[in-house]
């Protein structure tokens, strides 16, 4: 009897080991580029292009971090980080709140014109942003928004600039929630906003957190909007500043690019690690049943 318990335990342990070996080795493939980036960022300039395939630097230096962080003409990456946090932070909050609100409308209220508007919303995702730059710039110039944060934040707060992705996603999650819950709440005297706020929102928390993670990363990495609308270098974001190291026809500060690229991933990773817990802890326990 004890031997069968033992063998079951051994078997379980064996399966656990196999799982970890597989998932980990595949993970190395996933991680390889990040390791390469990290390794290259610590190589001296003369080594970067002469030993490209090595991950581990022959000579170790932090010069690129110091030099890169210095930024340009007295405006350092501290400023760029502040701007990026402001932009990504506000953008994310606004985007998730709006998306959830709008998604509830599309998912739970049947109103005339709903399908048409929903179609319009999806269509905005199908037109490449690059082609909209010029018309949009002309519009925003006339609104005198150039060199302010408005063109970066407001479209996000109003569900534009790719936010349709989140609205659509949350719609799908809301539609996965039994309608009986709404009906019960309605009988208990809860209005539509109450249902939205107290019933549906807690149940789609994984979707909201997922939206938040994506939104933060997309806003953080977006360089086109800040590039076009921000003129003053003191307003530049990390994503824009990173690209100001590159001049393919002349000199490109690859060391600084690698160092600052690597550094710019840190906040995104931290946000992911903190918030993904919220997804997986999820709502399975909150008694949702079909």
């Amino acid at each position: 009897m004890s031997s069968s318990v033992l063998s079951m335990r051994t078997r379980r342990r064996f399966r656990e080991v196999v799982f970890h070996v597989l998932v980990f080795s595949f993970g190395v493939v996933m991680l390889y580029p990040l390791l390469w980036l990290a390794g290259s960022s610590f190589k001296p300039s003369t080594e970067i292009w002469t030993t490209v395939s090595n991950i581990v630097p022959r000579t170790f230096t932090v010069a690129h971090y110091i030099n890169g962080w210095r930024g340009f003409g007295g405006v350092s990456f501290a400023t760029f980080y502040r701007n990026s946090f402001l932009y990504a932070g506000l953008g994310t909050l606004a985007s998730v709140a709006t998306s959830a609100f709008v998604a509830f409308g599309f998912a739970r209220v049947r109103f005339p014109g709903r399908n048409i508007w929903f179609g319009c919303m999806l269509a905005t995702l199908m037109l490449p942003v690059q082609i909209q730059i010029i018309p949009q710039y002309i519009l925003f110039t006339q609104l005198r928004w150039v060199n302010t944060f408005w063109p970066l934040i407001l479209p996000r707060a109003l569900g534009q600039a790719g936010q349709a992705f989140f609205i659509f996603m949350i719609v799908q999650f809301i539609r996965g929630i039994p309608i009986e819950l709404d009906e019960a709440a309605s009988i208990d005297g809860l209005g539509r906003f109450g249902i939205f706020n107290r019933i549906v929102m807690p149940l789609v928390k994984p979707a909201l957190v997922t939206s938040g993670i994506f939104s933060f990363y997309w806003t953080w990495a977006d360089f086109l909007t800040p590039l076009i609308y921000l003129n003053d270098p003191r307003l530049y974001t990390v994503s824009v500043a990173l690209r100001a190291f590159a001049d393919p026809s002349g000199q490109t500060d690859w060391g600084a690019i690698f160092a600052m690229s690597f550094l710019s991933l840190v906040p995104v990773l931290i946000v992911f690690v903190i918030f993904q817990k919220q997804i997986v802890e999820g709502i399975s326990t909150s008694g949702l049943k079909g």
């Binding site: 730059i133 710039y137 002309i138 110039t141 590039l227 076009i228 824009v240 690209r243 590159a246 026809s249």
Partner: peptide, 20 residues
Amino acid sequence: TYEFAGWTDYWTKLTTMAAG
């Protein structure tokens, strides 16, 4: 006042500014 960018971004931005 001044603005600067890498090569690719420079032309995207300058072109857009010209349109505006």
